[in-house]
Amino acid sequence: MTRKFRLRPRAEQKVVQFFLYLLTSLAILVLVFILVVILKNGLPQLSLEFLTKNPVHMGKEGGIFSTIVATIYLTFIALLVATPLGVGTAIYLTEYTFEGKITRIIRFGAECLAGIPSIIFGLFGFILFVNKLKFGWSILSGGLTLAFMVLPTIIRTSEEAIKSVPAAYRLVSYSLGSTRWQTVTRVVLPSAAPGIVTGVILSIGRSIGETAAVIFTAGSALHLPSSIFSSARTMSVHFYILAREGISMSKAYGTAAVLVISILLINIVTYYLMGKYIRQSSSE
């Protein structure tokens, strides 16, 4: 039955190619549209004042300085905790053990953790850090919650980076009489550094953009945070509240532009590093 109505293969290919072209253009156009709208409406809102003044009247006026500071604090704590844990896990998986039951359990844990939605991390952080450990809504609670959220990313990228260090490096190091730890810290990690940094930078981007996990752990206080125990509102949370409660669409666009530009810059740096890293390792 299908035989009768089948197009000639060459004609079929032309038709398919046309539709693929159409769908691809649509996908790319939509994605580019999003970027253009944010920048077009957001860039005019940006000024030195917007970046350096605190929000006034719930954000209706003034700038977003306190939310930038809160975002930096939170991201810093998250990475301070997640980086050693993630890199340590990767070192253990690649250098200190063989594939077996334990590595399977560890990988399973990391994979499942990567799939858990941020709102569940928010609930977890709320129960553990805000309530049980009595940190309250604070930068510390938010930062720790984010740390566990980005941990799987850091583990995976570090593992890839360490695995791609040529085995010859290790052999040479051992043959010179180094211990395993010396080999790891002086030979393997320095060679894997660009790849590890890539994972860390990606995690910074994710922390900056996160809303659901942060709003229930760091709260949404608008003042400038004075310590890691003060509640704080990050840029994403501020943007969400501005837009959802209709406080000020122009300020929302401005905040969105700052968010998107910083994340794009971070991702571009990552790409640059990764490209350099790949060129480097392929030329060896």
Partner: peptide
């Protein structure tokens, strides 16, 4: 790479637009 860069745009921004 352009498409992968767009993967980093926070979800709240998609919701807002």
């Amino acid at each position: 790479p352009v498409i992968e860069l767009l993967a980093g745009i926070p979800s709240v921004v998609y919701g807002f637009l």
